[in-house]
Simulated assay, not measured.
Amino acid sequence: MLGLMDEMKERGVSPNVDTYNIVLNSVCEGERTEEAATLLDEMLQRGITPNIYSFKLLIKTFCRTGEFRPAQEVFEIAVSICGHKEVLYKLMFNELLAGGEILEAKQLFEAALDRCFDLNGFHYKDLIDRLCVDENLESANDILNKMMQRGYRFDPALFMPMIDYLGKRGNKHEVNELTERMLAMGSDTEMENKFHRDDKLFNGNQYKDDGSDWRTILHRDDGSAIAMKTLKRVQKGWGHGNLSYYQARKNDFLDDWDASI
């Protein structure tokens, strides 16, 4: 393929972005990151504008090979060319999170919140879980607070990892406070219109049929002592809200990685 590209240039045939994407796809499948970076540089030098598909290939390949700094540099180039596209932030965030780059993922997610992006497809529940596992509860709490301040509606079950880990550390006051907030959110939800079960808050696949609404989480017996204790307190009438499951409005989002993007 590279030889054919050279021959095209020699014959005065200018490759376009689709031609480069075909070669990029092949190079990236082989995880040949140096050649992929060279192709991107060549495109820019020749005045051929990469599209979102080009950047998707590069970012995923760099992250797959553990080269997160180059991936972030590609992301910055992508933003400078394509603008602050939700699809680029979603891709970079999910790749950083999957690669264990938790703090970088957190910073990017906060930038997405500042831009009021639709959060469908952002695996932010995993971010909350990871921050709690790392005992970075302050950061997890900051994210939930920021989401509420920005007017995002989310499943109150997101409070459960924090309640669980705080309970294991014996922070009874914080557990009670967060549980009150969770119950209050559930109570406020009952004042809203009911949404259909198939309207999902989280990304279309990860939470589709996993019983992730917070009422189910509270009732499941998976060894989470804090969840069960919370449930018992709720059953005894503690708190000010009733348990009710909540799903946000269905929003369309860009999820087509076709080369024509």
Rank of each mutant, 00 (worst) to 15 (best):
L2Y: 07
D6E: 15
S14F: 07
D18V: 13
Y20P: 05
Y20G: 01
N21E: 00
C28M: 04
E29M: 10
R32A: 10
L40S: 07
L40D: 08
D41C: 07
E42P: 03
S54E: 05
K60G: 04
R69M: 12
P70S: 04
Q72E: 13
E73D: 13
S80V: 02
H84M: 09
K85H: 11
K90L: 10
F93T: 01
F93K: 00
N94T: 01
G100D: 05
E101R: 15
E101C: 10
A105S: 13
A112F: 00
A112T: 01
D114F: 00
N120W: 00
H123I: 03
D126W: 07
L127I: 03
L127A: 02
R130K: 11
V133D: 15
E135L: 10
S139A: 13
S139D: 14
L144K: 08
N145Y: 06
K146V: 01
Q149C: 10
Y152N: 07
L158A: 09
M160N: 11
D164N: 14
Y165C: 15
K168F: 00
V175I: 05
E190K: 12
M191C: 10
M191L: 14
K194Q: 11
F195H: 11
D199L: 09
D199I: 01
N205K: 13
D209A: 07
D209S: 10
D213P: 00
D213Y: 09
R215A: 14
R215Y: 08
I217A: 12
H219C: 09
R220G: 01
D221K: 15
I226A: 14
R233S: 13
V234D: 02
Q235Y: 03
S244F: 02
L254V: 10
A259Q: 12
S260P: 00
